[in-house]
């Protein structure tokens, strides 16, 4: 038996926590450190900060947010957005990150995954996959926050990144992200049953039943959420209590 991790995903632009719909239609939510601290006190198991404009501008602005977060938040923190090389990753680890999430740079240069896992350890390498079903009926990996297609089949890519040494997959459905339509169960099931590294399901959580479905029907190892908690429609203690009532193991506070 294992515990399902409840993760808050926090998309950042400049100094602000923001929320997008299908990676577009950006709304400002508030101060990322305030929200992170609230989630920590509520019993979140992990926090993911993604700088959503970093890969376009090839820089990451999360150092300041991260430095502040390390003072009062003591759960694992993953940071992503614009990480191009081992130096970027090491800088973020020194600033207080535990894991580094990479998408665009890993697709452009898959050997980066090997370099990262050799230098910072597989356990700290999270490969973020932005998946969208294409007209040929297969899941295609996108880069630059769901903007650009790559022709890469998500299933093939998942197997490859595991082989290259990734420690975990953050799997986001571009079609469901921020839509409140529920997770894409087929996508998550497909990947989580193919790889033996943990898969974090992301994109579409809006209700408690979404949580139950993604764990029981799609075998997610962890569930990332943003919209539903940022706007206070759900909160972490309720999600965990619900999980326990459905016999899903979670960490209790």
């Amino acid at each position: 038996m294992k515990n399902i991790r409840v993760i808050s995903r926090m998309d950042i632009k400049g100094p602000n926590l923001i929320k997008t719909i299908r990676f577009e239609g950006l709304r400002k939510v508030g101060d990322p450190n305030d929200f992170a601290l609230k989630y920590y006190n509520d019993g979140v198991d992990e926090i993911i900060f993604i700088d959503i404009v970093a890969s376009l501008y090839q820089r990451n602005n999360l150092d300041a947010i991260l430095k502040k977060a390390t003072k009062n938040i003591f759960v694992p923190i993953t940071v992503g957005g614009g990480v191009r090389n081992v130096d970027d990753a090491q800088r973020l680890l020194r600033a207080g990150a535990d894991k580094i999430a990479v998408n665009t740079a890993a697709i452009q240069n898959p050997d980066l995954i090997k370099d990262l896992s050799t230098n910072i350890g597989s356990q700290s390498v999270v490969i973020s996959i932005e998946a969208k079903k294409n007209i040929n009926g297969f899941w295609e990996a996108y880069i630059n926050n769901g903007r650009d297609k790559t022709g890469l089949n998500v299933l093939d890519w998942s197997k490859k990144i595991q082989k290259l040494g990734a420690g975990e997959i953050l799997l986001t459905s571009v079609d469901r992200e921020g839509t409140r339509k529920g997770f894409d169960l087929d996508l998550v099931k497909l990947v989580s049953e193919e790889v033996n590294i943990p898969v974090i399901a992301c994109g579409g959580m809006y209700s408690l039943s979404c949580f139950e479905n993604i764990v029981k029907k799609a075998n997610a190892d962890a569930v990332a959420m943003s919209d539903c908690i940022h706007f206070n429609r759900l909160n972490i203690p309720d999600i965990k209590q619900f999980a326990i009532s459905k016999e899903i193991s979670v960490r209790k506070l």
């Binding site: 390390t70 003072k71 003591f74 680890l93 207080g96 910072i120 350890g121 700290s124």
Partner: peptide
């Protein structure tokens, strides 16, 4: 020099 020593420092400083 490997990994995240900062979080451990912060945890003690918190105390």
């Amino acid at each position: 020099p490997y990994g995240n020593v900062l979080s451990l420092i912060r945890a003690f400083e918190y105390l």
